[in-house]
Write a protein that binds this DNA or RNA. Structure first.
Length: 843
RNA sequence: GGCCGAGUGGCGGAAUUGGCAGACGCGCCGGAUUCAAAAUCCGGUAUUCGCAAGAAUGUGUCGGUUCGAGUCCGACCUCGGCUACCA
């Protein structure tokens, strides 16, 4: 027997690794210790050559589509968070193949994006070059970890072949009236020279880079996601997603039902429309508030209030988003104007205040201080009367209100509606308003249409062009006027519309974007007339909105995905990725999918059936990993020191997949020891040794446990069960080959290289991936005898050993005998017998 | 402020329908091996009291339901994530 000697260096790892052959006479050719650095490349090469993970076609077997959120190939390479989700899906993919499924498990690159462009601005390197270098690094690292992707299906969102179909989908959106232009206030980030989506702005700063963001009006392409709001909301019921993610999407869509109510303005031929979810509180509306941007402000303001109002409006305009958020005090000024409450004819003052948002509802509210916290604050600050119109009991409060009562209740001080419950009141008053022409029921959403324009270089050009009015050649500098009101779709046959080559990617002052400087690209002639291409590009989300479709049919030049294959593979059965995509990517992708569904391109209403978010991996001290903290763990280092299989198993062993958990390098050493022991047990394999009854039971139990845990994606406890088995096997001098066969089959989805290696050592033909998953016999999992704790008054006082299907009487008899001394002189009042679990005696 | 999630040994975690709390791993302690060390192997390791047998306590806090609660119910505390004036 060769000495068992581990390849793990000391943690400091300065010691030079000695070759085992320097200390012993190794068996010729046979490996005598676990060396991941040797076996991992060996099996990776085998898989490549063998095409082990090619996606099967038309076998008639059940299918499963297991997808990772594809990475943005950043310059810093993989971090340890990537392999967490990727290992989880890889285990599922390998497990499903072994259980008879056709598995689609692809990988690709979400490769458009700002960092490559920023790098280009700094160094002049073309973003394409940076991107392909980064992709090479990512691919090397993913291959190093032994993931079973079908690399023949690799896709890159920046390749012209892919861009073609991203643009094609845009044209579908355009044809259907779901892509339109709008002159809207946008989040202009001068430092980045681009417009950002609301979602990309956090506290008034850009999500990437943290630069200040201003609001300026600009012509933008916008996608009408709001047209799908109700379906995006309703179909959330049908997916197996984490509850928290579904709730986040629901709240992002933000549907609320209420009424639109019209208040006529005194002495003006105008009326203010408000949206309210509480029309039942109309009698308590003691003032109105317009957003500072509201067009009626000008009209309703009286001469003596004009100065104050204009100064407030000016102030609000200059306030950055950030300041607005930092300061929650209810500021505002009276306009001097009055409006008439349609339910009781009362004249109420009209204010302007920036706590009313121009972007939501009608940009104006009826303020009910008694039943809305913000209105209460404002009324208190400005000495406006507070009238209670809802109470819990149905009788008005006797003391003045100390705060807003926002709950539902019974109407008071509401004329003929007094005594009605909130819900009934809403219905009644909405109907009455409608009859009187003063209002109507209305549904409002927080969801805004999606700003789809970016003024960047490194993105998909939007395949639209416009007529140009010009006297000369605009490419040569002639004056021109672009007719943005007459957008035309680029002919499908001309797709992909490629990016022009530029020397300078810097954003300029021209808000039309970087591409506007590429005049030869921008302007062209057709039939003697001049035209100009759209110079905005698409946001990074575009490519990631539909990549899962391209994986199904990645080389199709006639369609983005053939209908037959789409039908065969959709929906994605398991989708794993970070929770940071809970709303943006996952909502956008659902929206596009539904549009393609309506266009007959895809056969399912939803793209992703089951969704799982892997948890964040923190640094060793429990802090977030970051370059500035210096606690970033590089997968290359871990693989070099411990091997890819150890890294994979460690990340799965850390805790539940979804949990946030801290990294611990010393714990990887423990996982590595486990793999060493598995290898060493295999060295002692003996064909003639047969498992005894105890080992047989353990084998069947382990199969059951590992199988059930993989199905439930509880990889940490599955690994624990395999550790228990390997610990038992190592106690034997001769380890039965059939036991090791089972262990190899259970282990290989987790540690694929070692799995293949020991499978071969056991005398089998690779690949172990082609072997069926082991089966267990439930009967063999059970013990013949069970040890049952006996409690007296709820405290464990002894144990009895019983046949596994013992009756209560048998248990009681055994307990009387075993605990005779403790039961002496006591009267048994009650017994609780849980078969095979516990016996509790109440005395 | 709102929503979601989580609090279990020195640490990561296990106990999934209420039934022996602490599986598995790390770390630590002791032993074997070694000239010595590393590595490996064996044993121990919740806390308190006790030489020991053993006993008591113990899953964030307080209370409740139950023969029995980490698990269920109520109130609270702490931490994390998301969100933030959405009428």
């Amino acid at each position: 027997m060769a000495p068992r000697c581990s390849a793990i260096g000391s943690r400091a790892s300065k010691a030079v690794h000695r070759s085992p052959r320097s200390r012993q006479h190794a068996m010729a050719g046979a490996m005598t210790r676990y060396e991941p650095a040797t076996i991992e490349p060996k099996w990776q090469a085998f898989w490549d050559k063998d095409d082990t993970f090619r996606t099967p076609e038309e076998t008639g077997r059940p299918k499963t589509y297991i997808l990772d959120m594809f990475p943005y190939p950043s310059g810093s390479g993989l971090h340890v968070g990537h392999p967490e989700g990727y290992t989880a899906t890889d285990i599922m993919a390998r497990y499903r193949r072994a259980t008879g499924y056709d598995v689609l498990h692809p990988m690709g690159w979400d490769a458009f994006g700002l960092p490559a462009e920023q790098h280009a601005i700094l160094t002049g390197t073309h973003p394409r070059d940076t991107t392909s270098e980064n992709i090479a690094t990512f691919k090397r690292q993913l291959k190093m970890l032994g993931f079973s992707y079908d690399w023949a299906r690799e896709i890159d969102t920046t390749s012209p072949d892919y861009v073609k179909w991203t643009q094609w989908i845009f044209l579908k959106l355009f044809e259907r009236g779901l892509a339109y232009q709008s002159e809207i206030p946008v989040n202009w980030c001068p430092a980045l020279g681009t417009v950002l989506a609301n979602e990309e702005v956090i506290n008034g700063l850009s999500e990437r880079g943290g630069y200040p963001v201003e609001r300026v009006p600009l012509r933008q392409w916008v996608l009408k996601i709001t047209a799908y709001a109700d379906r995006l909301l309703a179909d959330l019921e049908a997916v197996e997603w984490p509850n928290s993610t579904r709730i986040m999407q629901q709240e992002w869509i933000g549907r609320s039902e209420g009424a639109e109510v019209k208040f006529d303005v005194v002495d003006h031929d105008a009326s203010i429309e408000v949206f309210t979810t509480r029309p039942d509180t109309l009698f308590g509306a003691t003032f109105m508030v317009l957003a500072p941007e509201h067009p009626l402000v000008e009209q309703v303001t009286t001469d003596e209030r004009r100065l104050a109002v204009e100064s407030y409006v000016e102030q609000a305009k200059n306030k950055s988003e950030r300041d607005r958020q930092a300061n929650k005090e209810k500021t505002g000024v009276f306009t001097g104007g009055l409006a008439i409450n349609p339910v009781n004819g009362a004249e109420v003052p009209i204010y302007i205040a920036d706590y009313v948002l121009w972007g939501y509802g009608t940009g104006a509210i009826m303020a009910v201080p008694a039943h809305d916290e913000r209105d209460f604050e404002f009324a208190t600050a400005h000495g406006i009367p507070i009238v209670e119109v809802v109470s819990k009991t149905g009788t008005p409060s006797e003391v003045p209100m100390k705060g807003a009562m926002v709950e539902q209740g019974v109407a008071v001080n509401s004329g003929k509606y007094d005594g009605l419950k909130t819900r009934e009141f809403k219905k009644r008053v909405t109907a009455d308003l409608e009859a009187a022409g003063h209002g109507t029921a209305r549904v409002e959403y927080k969801l805004r249409d999606w700003n789809f324009s970016r003024q960047r270089y490194w993105g998909e050009p939007i395949p639209i062009y416009f007529p140009v009015e010009t006297d000369g050649d605009p490419r040569a500098g002639a004056d021109f006027r672009i007719r943005y009101d007459e957008p035309m779709a680029v002919d499908e046959a001309e797709l992909p519309l490629r990016l022009p080559e530029l020397d300078d990617y810097k954003p300029g002052e021209d808000p039309a974007g970087v591409l506007a400087r590429a005049r030869d690209w921008r302007f062209f002639q057709k039939g003697g007339a001049w035209f100009a291409r759209e110079t905005n590009t698409m946001p990074q989300w575009a490519g990631s909105c539909w990549y899962y479709l391209r994986f199904i049919d990645p080389r199709n030049s006639k369609a983005l995905c053939s209908p037959e294959l789409a039908k065969a593979w959709l929906p994605v059965d398991l989708y794993v990725g970070g929770a940071e995509h809970a709303v943006l990517h996952l909502l956008y992708a659902r929206f596009w999918h539904k549009v393609l569904y309506d266009a007959g391109v895809v056969p399912t209403k939803e793209p992703f059936k089951k969704l799982v978010h892997q948890g964040m991996i923190l640094g060793e001290g429990g802090q977030k990993m970051s370059k500035s903290r210096g606690n970033v763990v590089n997968p290359d280092d871990i693989v070099r020191e411990f091997g890819a299989d150890s890294m994979r198993i460690y990340e799965m062993f850390m805790g539940p997949l979804e949990a946030t958990k801290p990294w611990s390098t010393s714990s990887i050493a423990g996982v590595r020891r486990f793999l060493d022991r598995v290898f060493n047990a295999t060295l002692r394999a003996d064909e003639d040794a047969k498992p005894d009854a105890g080992l047989t039971r353990l084998l069947h139990r382990t199969i059951r446990k590992v199988t059930e845990d993989i199905e439930g994606m509880r990889f940490n406890t599955a690994i624990s069960a395999m550790m228990v088995l390997s610990n038992e096997l190592l106690k034997l001098d001769k380890v039965p080959t059939e036991a090791l066969d089972v262990l190899a089959k259970l282990l290989h989805p987790f540690a694929p290289h070692l799995g293949e290696e020991i499978w071969e050592m056991l005398g089998h033909h690779p690949s172990i991936q082609n072997e069926p998953w082991p089966a267990y016999d439930p009967a063999l999992c059970e013990e013949d005898e069970v040890e049952v704790p006996v409690q007296i008054n709820g405290k464990v006082r002894g144990r009895i050993t019983l046949p596994k299907d013992a009756t209560e009487d048998q248990a009681l008899a055994a307990a009387r005998q075993a605990l005779a001394s403790q039961l002496e002189g006591k009267t048994l009042r009650k017994t609780i017998w849980v078969p095979g679990k516990i016996l509790n005696l109440i005395v």
